[in-house]
């Protein structure tokens, strides 16, 4: 039996990072419904979230390239 590689849990961690970040975005939609006109603070928040999610998706994508 091969030993488990705990480093590979990064895929799971990145998945939760994406899910949880999306919940933060939901907060923005809830606070700004029904027009979604963001104030400067919210705009920065959304940008930060998008960057965080992109990074996490890159990590998840690595698993596709593993042979």
């Amino acid at each position: 039996m091969p030993k488990i590689d705990k480093d590979k849990r990064k895929y799971v961690d990145a998945t939760f990072m994406v899910i949880e970040s999306m919940e933060e975005l939901r907060d923005v939609w809830r606070k700004t419904a029904p027009f979604y006109e963001l104030e400067e603070k919210e705009r920065i928040e959304v940008e930060k979230t998008i960057k965080k999610v992109r990074k996490a998706l890159d990590i998840i994508e690595e698993v596709v390239n593993v042979k």
Binding site: E23, E24, R26, D27, W29, R30, A33, P34
Partner: peptide, 17 residues
């Protein structure tokens, strides 16, 4: 997320992230 929801039974149970 789509609406401003006024249902009084749901108002205090809305969750945050």
């Amino acid at each position: 997320e789509y609406f401003i929801n006024l249902n009084p039974i749901q108002a205090g149970g809305k969750t945050n992230s």
